[in-house]
């Protein structure tokens, strides 16, 4: 289930219908080890990564698009996905996706 925090509507200022794309980044973990896996960072950006194909997981008030290859895994987690506005960064943040394996 996707929930939008009240801050999102304020952030949008009435301009609904915007499209945000989930970008995934893997950053090196704190352990320099061939078994230690990289850490996943998630960002919602207004532009799409040309290397990915996207599908929508929500339509209103903001259309949230996620990489097609990860969509099934996101939905299977059955987590509460929460979208909030980060005023400092002037962007939306996403939480509630616990893990997305690299190999899915």
């Amino acid at each position: 289930m996707i929930r939008f925090d009240k801050s999102v509507l304020k952030f949008l200022g009435g301009k609904e219908g915007k499209i945000y794309f989930l970008h995934l980044r893997y950053v090196p973990g704190p352990c320099n080890d061939d078994i230690c896996s990289p850490l996943l960072k998630m960002e919602l950006l207004e532009s799409a990564d040309p290397e990915d194909e996207y599908v929508a997981i929500s339509e209103t008030p903001v259309k949230i698009m996620v990489p097609k290859s990860k969509a099934k895994e996101i939905l299977k987690q059955r987590g509460d996905i929460i979208i909030k506005a980060d005023r400092l960064k002037r962007s939306l943040t996403i939480s509630g996706i616990d893990y997305l394996p690299l190999n899915v």
Partner: peptide, 12 residues
């Protein structure tokens, strides 16, 4: 190795 279990999120 590159897979993930939900509980690892805390570790991440």
């Amino acid at each position: 190795i590159s897979g993930r279990a939900k509980v690892q999120r805390i570790a991440d």
